[in-house]
Amino acid sequence: MSALNGRNGYDSETEASGTMATEAPDTIVFSNVSKFYGEILGVNRVNLVIRPGITSLVGPNGSGKTTLMNLVSGLLRPSRGTITVLGVPVDDAEGLGRRVGYCTQVDSFPPGMTGYDFVYGFLRVGGCPAAEAATRAWAAIERVDLVDAAKRKVAGYSKGMRQRIKLALAISHGPRILVLDEPMNGLDPMARAEMAALFQALAAEGHFVIISSHILHEVDTLSDAVVVINHGYVLAEGGISNVRDAMDAEHPLGILIRCDKPGQLARHVFGHEHVIEARVHDDGLGLLVRTRDSDGFFRALGEIALTTDLVIDSVTPADDDVEAVYRYLIGGSGETT
């Protein structure tokens, strides 16, 4: 997928954006934005400034990531507050459409179209003349490495191919801002790496790349900034390097072990010296362990599983848990409350 990293339509935009910086603010600004679906809270009182580079929205299912992205791209209107995108208010559908390319989480397409028809057709909807739309469509399809499949019906595409043809449409008109809702979903590790490389290339050229994920470590190495969101509230935002430093230096690894008798497991676990904390999870169905030596701990855990009758359902890093991330971000003590 080398075409993805190659020179492309975004290249010289950086120069252009350099000259326009004085005219329009080079940021996406949320001020006091709330979105309600009837009675249901989407996001609440969001204040955010997003700058060029890769920004990751991280939060569990239903936390409001898609809502935020739909708001930035004008698919939803805020119930309260204002959003401006490079100085453009979000009710200017035309101005917003030029600046934003959005690859949504929705995995559906107009029926009966080939990949090429899809990209070409919507470029034409935007008013691109026929010849230019054709050139742009092919350029975008090449960039996502889908040339061979371009003349086949989208209905026959794999999940990863559908993801990529959506991405091709999102970048086809050369927007400054790229919004991608869970772009890594359905991609194999190779494709993920290529996708990540593309994001980094775009960011290096001065683009805004906004991606979402419910797994922090899927995006942490990639991101210039992370926005942690939960239950519709932005819990924290900041540069990922600070966050990561804090996590590495001050905080031992947190692990959540789901098992039937967490109390019993805790007694076994405490026998190992590298464990500095082990407490039963609030729901009584798991054990939260903090350890300075994760490799050692996992070996020990294997032994425990073998030598006792404990049923261990799952072992997950507790730092996937947004609460844990939040504590790291705000520099808390790491205590579970």
Binding site: G9, D11, A16, A24, R99, A133, R136, A139, G174
Partner: peptide, 25 residues
């Protein structure tokens, strides 16, 4: 103004699009 900056922003695309001048939109 917004439209004008839009044109500026996308001005570079012409090259990728086979040298078809500034943003077709």
């Amino acid at each position: 103004a917004a439209i004008a900056t839009g044109a500026d922003t996308a001005a570079g695309d012409g090259r990728a699009a086979g040298g078809i001048g500034p943003d077709g939109f």
